[in-house]
Design a protein around this nucleic acid. Structure first.
Lengths: 126, 126
DNA sequence: TCCCCCTTTTACAAACCTTTTACAAATCGA
DNA sequence: TCGATTTGTAAAAGGTTTGTAAAAGGGGGA
């Protein structure tokens, strides 16, 4: 089962929530506090959309209706630090928010298609 | 049982209302907000006619009597994105509205006929 | 205090979504 | 069948959201 893992893990990305530590292909990635919290929150909700409101509330403590670009800027920095998977993990849901998408191998058959099968990733919040 | 599914599912189409995510034959389909809301509303009423008025009211917040073509345009886009089942799912009820029709295999006997049998699809709003 | 690093803002570009417009095609009643 | 109405479709217009680079702001440690 997944309980007890207390982290996110797939082929390339590893996040330890306990250690607040992120690795891409085995190499340690240095994130600032906000960057980490943003990524962690998204990864903890892997596969699900997290609205901007929710991110601003939970990471920044902002109340609803606050208008700021700081979220976008942080998203950009996190994406950059996840290189070479810059555009792989954090998906933009236009007008809604962002979604962390677990790594999926592209199928060799149809280009633009995703392979189906067992997840290949796991999250657990302990 | 169906309860708890919180989505629509048949042989080819899968809609997760919780994740706002739509898949056609396993491939993720990207819908805009309005497109998704439109499809979701129709799918939640699978097999039933949803009048234009109702769609314009619930998806757009328009009040009765508003005259616009935006609904038609959105219907078209959603249909297109459900390829290769473009003309399969959303049926036009002339002068009334639209109806989402769950996928049914065409019978090999009479062309233009629908096979009968168990539903083969399910909706649940949790 | 100064410096460094992190965060936030600013400003503009780019991408995106929605709505309108205009005309063609389809449908229905007379 | 004709005419009026409704829907399909393509393309453009309009408006909003997000991406990005750079500068400004702020806090903690030396």
């Amino acid at each position: 089962m997944l309980l007890g893992l207390n982290g996110y893990e797939d082929t390339h990305l590893n996040i330890s929530f306990a250690r607040r530590q992120v690795e891409v292909d085995g190499a340690l990635v240095t994130l600032t506090r906000k960057e980490y919290e943003l990524l962690a929150l998204l990864a903890q909700n892997a596969g699900e959309i997290v609205p901007r409101d929710a991110l601003l509330r939970q990471v920044w403590g902002y109340s609803e209706g606050v208008r700021t670009r700081t979220l976008d800027v942080h998203i950009r920095r996190v994406r950059k630090k996840l290189a070479p998977f810059t555009d792989q993990y954090i998906e933009t849901i236009f007008g809604v928010g962002y979604r962390f998408q677990p790594y999926r191998q592209r199928s060799a058959v149809g280009s633009g298609e995703w392979a189906v099968g067992s997840p290949g990733w796991a999250v657990a919040t302990g």
